[in-house]
Simulated scan of single mutants.
Amino acid sequence: MDGTRNCETCASEGGLEFGAECARDFGSVDSGGGRAGRRTIVRISVCIITLNEEANLRRCLQSCTGLAEEVVVLDSGSIDGTEGVAQEFGARWIVRDWPGYMRQKNNVIGLAEEDWVLNLDADEALSPGLRRAIEDLKKTKPPDSVGGFSMSRCVYYERRWVRHGDWYPDRLVRLFRREGSHFEGGRVHERLELSGDIRKLEGDIEHYSFADSADHWARCQKYAWLWAEDARDAGKQAGVFAPWLHGAFRWIRGYVLRGGFLDGRQGWRIASLNAREVFLKYRLLRRLNEAGRVTA
């Protein structure tokens, strides 16, 4: 796959596991012909975008302490203590107006100075297992054919780690070569495009995404509207039964087929809210379709 274009979703389709064992197999060679030992070969820029993330950023940066050669925080106008937290950890702090998720993520990648980028959201943190896998990787020289590494993401929801349903493993490419990588997409749910193979890293990104179910539903409504606008702009149409059919399928997939019921009442709530979000997406799209026909 060297030289081909890949997005994050490809990571779940058969990449090789890359943990401590694989890292040793890659073992690099120093100038004397032996193992490079603990010498850092993979140099990393941690890249984070923020807006009023004082409550989350410290946890994120603590999980990365001593792991990367630099930390870049690109802010879009925080009025809380986000900047103070970033400076506490020695991060490079830059402020730019908000141009949208995709463009801001590309902006922060453009500010990175190292060859590899570890892209995190402020409400995420590295699990101990994932940190160890990255530490092992830093002592190796990955083949030139490898463009990125994927990792699973585990959501902390209502005081429980969610390990089933639509939310897990949610494997994403978050560590990748800076050169030739960029984000594409619409108003929300951007995707990473890169060149080369994708390997898997052991361990999880810990995602502290929602304060409670009310916060969850508020974001569902926001994302549903952004999705509907993107779908309308792309010429997508929604039939009269589309909200009901897509919503029902999402619930069955998340709660039954992917084992969401194993996460107890949290699994039920997640599946139900996800289904409501999908229903809302297609209902909003129908409204936009109808408004477009009226104005035409």
Score class of each variant (00 low, 15 high):
105 K>H: 08
105 K>T: 01
106 N>E: 02
110 G>A: 06
110 G>K: 02
110 G>P: 04
110 G>S: 04
111 L>V: 02
114 E>V: 06
114 E>C: 13
115 D>R: 13
115 D>F: 02
116 W>H: 04
117 V>R: 04
118 L>C: 10
119 N>A: 10
119 N>F: 14
119 N>H: 15
119 N>Y: 11
120 L>C: 05
120 L>T: 07
121 D>P: 05
124 E>R: 11
125 A>E: 09
127 S>K: 11
127 S>C: 13
128 P>R: 03
129 G>Q: 08
129 G>P: 05
132 R>N: 10
132 R>L: 10
133 A>V: 07
136 D>N: 14
138 K>Y: 00
138 K>T: 11
139 K>G: 00
142 P>R: 02
142 P>H: 01
143 P>D: 07
144 D>E: 14
144 D>N: 07
145 S>D: 09
145 S>R: 13
145 S>M: 03
145 S>W: 07
146 V>H: 02
147 G>L: 00
147 G>Y: 01
150 S>V: 08
150 S>P: 08
150 S>D: 06
152 S>W: 05
152 S>F: 09
154 C>K: 14
154 C>A: 15
156 Y>H: 15
157 Y>M: 12
157 Y>W: 11
158 E>Q: 13
158 E>P: 00
158 E>D: 13
159 R>S: 12
160 R>D: 01
160 R>C: 11
160 R>G: 04
160 R>V: 05
161 W>P: 10
162 V>K: 00
162 V>A: 00
162 V>R: 01
163 R>L: 11
163 R>D: 06
163 R>P: 00
166 D>M: 11
167 W>V: 10
168 Y>R: 12
168 Y>G: 13
169 P>W: 13
169 P>I: 09
170 D>C: 11
170 D>K: 05
171 R>Q: 13
171 R>H: 08
171 R>G: 03
175 L>C: 11
175 L>G: 12
176 F>Y: 15
177 R>N: 13
178 R>N: 09
178 R>S: 08
179 E>T: 10
179 E>W: 01
180 G>N: 01
182 H>G: 11
182 H>A: 12
184 E>Y: 09
185 G>W: 01
185 G>R: 01
186 G>K: 08
186 G>N: 04
188 V>Y: 04
188 V>E: 03
188 V>I: 14
189 H>R: 12
189 H>I: 10
192 L>M: 03
192 L>N: 05
193 E>Q: 12
193 E>V: 14
194 L>C: 04
195 S>T: 11
197 D>T: 13
197 D>E: 15
197 D>A: 15
199 R>Q: 15
201 L>K: 11
201 L>P: 12
202 E>G: 15
204 D>Q: 09
207 H>S: 09
208 Y>D: 06
208 Y>G: 11
209 S>I: 09
209 S>C: 13
210 F>W: 08
210 F>I: 00
210 F>V: 05
211 A>M: 01
212 D>H: 03
212 D>R: 00
213 S>F: 12
213 S>M: 01
213 S>A: 09
214 A>D: 07
214 A>L: 10
215 D>I: 03
215 D>C: 02
216 H>Q: 13
216 H>A: 04
217 W>P: 01
217 W>N: 08
218 A>I: 02
219 R>E: 07
220 C>M: 14
221 Q>F: 07
224 A>Y: 06
224 A>H: 05
224 A>Q: 06
227 W>V: 15
228 A>E: 06
228 A>W: 09
228 A>H: 12
229 E>S: 14
